[in-house]
Design a protein around this nucleic acid. Structure first.
Lengths: 404, 404
DNA sequence: ACTACTAAGTTCAAATCGTGTAAGAAGTGC
DNA sequence: GCACTTCTTACACGATTTGAACTTAGTAGT
C-alpha cells in the first residue's frame, strides 16, 4: 500500500486478490495448497474461497486423492464468469477479439484500414463496432464483459484517460480513452502495443515464469517492453521502452527519428534492407519489406554481400541486447517482431554468442535469450489481459465497482 | 503487500509506516496535517502518534498558531531516538560515519588502504573497527545504533547475506554481509556505492521530489543508479545500472571490460585522457587522472585539440544520456562523479542541448538534467539511509525485531 | 458391513484494528 | 467570558484473521 492508509477492508481485498491470483496463475489448486501458497490460515482460505465460489468467480474442478484421507477439491477461476475484449489498433487494421477468462478466443473481427493516416474517429468507430460485433458473435451477455483493453501503436500517456501519441498514425495528443469511453459503458484500458504483446508473452509465451524480462520487438520499427517485478515499466510519462532509438553507433546512419546511429537504423527492417542496397544488393521493391527481408535471408548462402549484411545485423542486434543486459540486468530477453523472428529462427545461437561478446560476464550468465512464442495476433490477446489483470488485482470486485 | 497475505497486524504496521514516513519526509507536521496527508481519521492519527511518542520515535517540535484557535503541535522524528552508521568501502579508503536520524554527522573515521587489491578481511576489519570508533567518538550508546549500511564499489547480490563481486577490489563472490555480521550484532545492509550515492542525492540532493530518476556517475569508471518509483532498481541479480558498459560506438574503442565501444571508453576519465593523448595532447602523468583532467579542461581555450576532445566528450555523454531518456523515460537525470561534475560545471547547458539532439522529443521534454549537489562523501551518507529506510518501512519496529 | 484412521475443509469464539460519533480538554484571540 | 480551532478520549460498530474444536469424506483393515 503505497503511502496511503490501510483499512481493514483493504486487507480483505488484498487477500482476495492474493487468493484469486494464485488460483488463476498456478492453475487448479486445492484449498490446502492455497493455504501453503499464500500463507493464509486454513480458516481464512475457506472463508475467502467460499465467498468467491458464491459469487461464481471460482468453481470446483475435480479432486485429487490424498493417501487415504478426504480428497482435495481443486479450484479454478470459472472461465465463463466474465469475458474480456482485446483490441489492436494498428496502421493497417483494427482487430478485436473476445476471450473468456481462460483466454480462449470466442470471437474475432478485423477491419482493414486503407487510408495511410486514419483519423482517430475512424479507429474509435471500428473498435466500438468490433466490440458490439464480437459480443453478439460470441453470444455472450454484454453485462458480463468485464473490460476492454486497447493496444495502440504509439506512446500512451495514462492509463486513466489515456492520451495517445502515435507518429505512424499521425496522432498527436489524441484522448483515445475518453473518446472510447463516450461510446460504451464497459471499462476501458489503453496501452502501447509493444507492452501488450510483451504482457501476452510474459503470461502465455516465452516469458512465463520470469519477473524481470525484456520483450524486444524488431520489425520495421524497433521497440521493447520492459518488465520489472512482473509488471511492465512505463517511466514517468509512459514512454519508456524506446530501445530502438538508443544510440549504438555514435555519428552513424541517420534514423527516421532525426538522430544518428540509432539501433533501429541498423536492425530495423528498413535499415537492414537499406544497408543491403547500399552494399550492392538488389534494389528491392519498396512496397513489401517482408518479402525483401526473406529474400535477403535466402541469399545468404549464395551472396557474400547478403551474408555480410546479415552478419552485421546480428552483431548490431547483439550490441543492443547487451546494452539491455548490462543496464537492466533482466532474467530473460524475448525476441519478437516479424523481422526479429525471421532472424532469430535461423541465427539464435549466433545471436546469443554475440551478446556474450558485448555484455559483462555476470549479467550475461544470468540471462536467457528466447524467441517469442506467440504470433503478432497476440497484441490483442495482451490487450485483453489488461482487464484480467485488474480483476485479479482487485480481487474480483472490479465489475461491481462500476455497476454500484 | 506483494503476493503475500495481509494480517490485521500488517495493517497497523503499514499505517505506522505511513505516519512515520510522512513525518520524516514532509518535515515537521501537525496531527491535523497528518490526517489530511495520510487520509487516516483524526482518532487513528492520535492513536498512532501517541504510540510513537510513547516509544520516543517521534517528539513534539514547537507549535504553529491557527487563526485564534488551539495551536497545532508540530511533530518530528526524534533525531536522537536512534543512530545509523554508513560505511564506504572504496579502493583507497574505508570511511565510516555515524549520523543521528536527522542525518547530521556526529562522527567520522577514515582508514586509508595502501595495497592495490585489499583482502576482504582487511575491509571487514576496518569497517568493524570504524563502527566501534564512531560510536565511542560520538558518545552514543551502542544499543541505540539501529543499523549499519555498507556501500561497496562493486556488484552486490543480496541484500540479505550480501555477496560482493568487485573487479576493482579483486573480490569475487565475497560474502561481505555474513563476514560483517559475524563481528557485530548490529543489523547490516550492503549495497553498491553508486546506488547509495544515488539514494543520498534522491533524498538530500538534486533528486529531491523525483520518483523516476537516474543518477549518472562519471569518474574513472562510469555507472548509474536507476531509481524507479522512489526505490533503486536492482534487476534480477542486483547488477542493473551498468550504464558505462553500454555500447555507443559499435566496433569502437576497446574498453577495459573487454568489449568495444562502451560509453566508459569514451567518457570515463581514462578514456577521455587517452583520447586526448592520441589526438596529440600532452602525455599526462598516469598517476593522477584528476589533475590531468583539470589540465585538459583548462587547455580548452588555448588548444584546439583539447577543445575538440572536450566537445566530443560532451557529445558522447549526451548520447549516453539520450539512451537513458529514451529507454527509461526518467523524470530527472542527475550527473555526478568527479569527472562528471568537472564537465557539468562548465558545460551543462551544452550537454542539455546535445541530449536534445539525440533523444526523442517527448521524453526529452519530460526530463530535467541536473548536477549532483552532494560531494563524493555522500556515499557513506547514502549507505546510512539504508537502515533509516528500513526503520520507516517497518514503522519504527525495526529495532525491536532484532532485540525480541 | 463395521470400525479405525487420515486428511481436508468448516465453524466459532477471541483478539485486533480503523471508523465514526460525540463529548470534552486545551490553548488562543477578542 | 466567549468563540474558535486542535487534539484527546471513550465507546459502539463492523470487519478481519486466527487457532482450536469440529465435521466431512474417503481409505484400509477386519
Amino acid at each position: 500500500m503505497d503511502g496511503r492508509r490501510t483499512t481493514v477492508r483493504d486487507m480483505r481485498r488484498s487477500n482476495r486478490s492474493v487468493i484469486l491470483t494464485s488460483i488463476y496463475r498456478q492453475g487448479p489448486l486445492s484449498r490446502y495448497e492455497l493455504g501453503h501458497e499464500t500463507s493464509l490460515s486454513a480458516a481464512s482460505v475457506s472463508n475467502l474461497v467460499g465467498e468467491l465460489l458464491d459469487e461464481g468467480i471460482v468453481e470446483e474442478a475435480g479432486s485429487v486423492e490424498s493417501d487415504g484421507g478426504r480428497p482435495r477439491v481443486l479450484l479454478r477461476v470459472a472461465p465463463s464468469f466474465g469475458y474480456v475484449v482485446g483490441a489492436e489498433v494498428g496502421e493497417t487494421r483494427v482487430r478485436v477479439e473476445l476471450f473468456d477468462l481462460a483466454m480462449t478466443v470466442l470471437a474475432t473481427v478485423v477491419y482493414p484500414i486503407e487510408t495511410p493516416k486514419p483519423a482517430p474517429e475512424l479507429a474509435v468507430k471500428y473498435v466500438l463496432q468490433g466490440l458490439d460485433a464480437v459480443i453478439t458473435q460470441a453470444g455472450v451477455p454484454a453485462e458480463r464483459v468485464l473490460g476492454l483493453g486497447v493496444a495502440v501503436a504509439g506512446v500512451v500517456e495514462g492509463p486513466a484517460d489515456a492520451v495517445v501519441h502515435a507518429q505512424t498514425l499521425g496522432w498527436d495528443g489524441v484522448p483515445l480513452g475518453a473518446m472510447l469511453a463516450a461510446g460504451t459503458s464497459i471499462p476501458i484500458q489503453v496501452d502501447n502495443g509493444a507492452n501488450t504483446l510483451g504482457q501476452a508473452e510474459m503470461w502465455f509465451g516465452a516469458g512465463r515464469g520470469a519477473t524481470d524480462a525484456v520483450v524486444a520487438l524488431v520489425g520495421s520499427g524497433v521497440g521493447a517492453a520492459l518488465v520489472t517485478g512482473g509488471t511492465s515499466y512505463r517511466g514517468t510519462r509512459s514512454s519508456a521502452g524506446e530501445w530502438g532509438h538508443t544510440t549504438i553507433m555514435y555519428g552513424g546512419r541517420r534514423c527516421r527519428c532525426g538522430a544518428e546511429g540509432c539501433l533501429e537504423a541498423y536492425v530495423g527492417a528498413e535499415g537492414v534492407l537499406d544497408r543491403y542496397r547500399l552494399a550492392g544488393g538488389p534494389a528491392a521493391r519498396s512496397d513489401d519489406d517482408e518479402a525483401a527481408f526473406i529474400g535477403l535471408l535466402g541469399a545468404v548462402d549464395s551472396s557474400e554481400v547478403a551474408a555480410k549484411v546479415v552478419e552485421d545485423t546480428i552483431g548490431y542486434l547483439a550490441a543492443g541486447f547487451a546494452n539491455l543486459v548490462n543496464l537492466v540486468n533482466p532474467e530473460r530477453i524475448v525476441l519478437g517482431g516479424w523481422a526479429g523472428l525471421l532472424l532469430g529462427e535461423r541465427y539464435l545461437a549466433e545471436l546469443r554468442e554475440a551478446v556474450g561478446k558485448h555484455a559483462l560476464h555476470r549479467p550475461y550468465a544470468q540471462v536467457t535469450i528466447e524467441l517469442c512464442e506467440l504470433g503478432r495476433d497476440a497484441v490483442a490477446l495482451g490487450a485483453a489481459t489488461l482487464p484480467v489483470l485488474r480483476l485479479l488485482r482487485e480481487g474480483g470486485t472490479a465489475k461491481r465497482v462500476t455497476t454500484a
